[in-house]
């Protein structure tokens, strides 16, 4: 098991190198760079720019060098902990990201947990009570959730929260807690504001996971090894948990790997609608502005998050299924 974990963690390094290369190429794909865009905008506004000044700016950020050198410079700086400078915000990338990434992680992790717990409970219920009214209701709601676009759901929930509960949704904090220091009240306020984003971002994934777990569990419930367990006298609830459920969780767990990037990218639109201070909207703006260091770093962080998510799901899988552990 230990060697499996080590191998799996080491495999992340080449993957990360590959991802950083791809990110850099993609960011470089549109013609021009931030400095030339900036200069063009200044000229449109009638500001006189000096050739020497522009060159100096380009040299300072290494923009005059060939692409592969730029990439190496970028990577080398990152290894030293320097993620570059955001042209648009005029601050080091790290400080900009540090402000927003934690909220993104909080929302992603909370969404994942919400999605898992709900999918686990509902999936197990609908499989063990197949074709019962409860199964039909849960399946209906699940399909509804799968089919409703996130931003739509966000708008509907905002309206319901406002008109029914008189609770203004938007942002992650109420105005009085916006700049307050971390207290119990602020944490509770954050949790209150998390409910809607988590539901909105998580609904589609949850609905999908319910279907997956339900189908897997239905496949397992009548397997001979379950009947064997019944025949040797294992009580019903323990039998369900120990035998079919554990096996049904295997494919369910492997979905986490692709569920996490879904959550991260699905969050962007929701974050715009709900005006959440997460990285989603910021990444969108950085890409539009060709703010390369900011965009590159953000995408790299999100990729890292995805890799970690996949790692977690792989480790869970290895723990759940000895066939994976003993393979390779």
């Amino acid at each position: 098991m230990a060697s499996y974990i080590v191998r799996r963690v080491l495999m992340m390094i080449p993957l990360l190198v590959l991802v950083s290369g791809v990110i850099f190429i993609v960011i470089q794909l549109p013609p021009g760079d931030y400095v030339s865009r900036h200069v063009a905008r200044l000229e449109m506004e009638g500001v006189v720019t000096h050739e020497a000044e522009i060159e100096a700016l380009k040299r300072r950020y290494g923009l005059d060098r060939p692409v592969h050198e730029q990439y190496l410079l970028w990577v080398r700086a990152m290894l030293r902990g320097d993620f570059g400078y955001s042209f648009a915000v005029r601050r080091p990338v790290l400080s900009v990201v540090a402000e927003r990434l934690p909220y993104s992680i909080i929302i992603s992790v909370a969404t994942l947990l919400f999605s898992w717990v709900v999918a686990f409970l509902v999936g197990t219920y609908t499989a063990t009570r197949q074709y019962s009214p409860g199964d039909y209701i849960a399946s209906f709601l699940g399909f509804l959730g799968l089919a409703t676009p996130n931003f739509m759901l966000a708008l509907i929930l905002m309206w319901i929260m406002y008109s029914v509960f008189g609770f203004t949704v938007g942002g992650l904090f109420s105005p009085e807690y916006q700049d307050a220091p971390w207290t119990m009240g602020r944490v509770l306020d954050l949790l209150k504001h998390l409910i809607i984003p988590v539901i909105v971002v998580g609904t589609a994934g949850t609905a999908g996971s319910i279907r997956i777990l339900r189908a897997n569990l239905l496949d397992e419930l009548n397997k001979p090894y379950v009947i064997t367990a019944e025949a040797k006298g294992v009580p019903p609830f323990r039998r369900l948990c120990k035998y079919p459920l554990r096996v049904a969780l295997i494919p369910f767990t492997s979905t986490v790997g692709w569920e996490l990037p879904n959550i991260v990218s699905g969050e962007t639109i929701t974050a715009v609608v709900l005006s959440l201070p997460t990285v989603g909207p910021m990444l969108l703006r950085a890409l539009v502005d060709q703010d390369m260091f900011l965009a590159g770093s953000l995408i790299l962080f999100l990729s890292l998050l995805t890799l970690v998510g996949t790692l977690v799901s792989d480790l869970l899988l290895a723990w759940l299924d000895p066939r994976i552990r003993y393979d390779r």
Partner: peptide
């Protein structure tokens, strides 16, 4: 699903199934 039957299953009366490939759980 009662306790009485459970006490007899595997204790007084045991079953051996036809397919040993699938009659034991693969994860234990």
């Amino acid at each position: 699903h009662g306790r009485e039957l459970r006490r007899i299953r595997g204790k007084d009366i045991s079953l051996v199934f036809q397919e040993p490939m699938v009659a034991l759980s693969p994860v234990y």
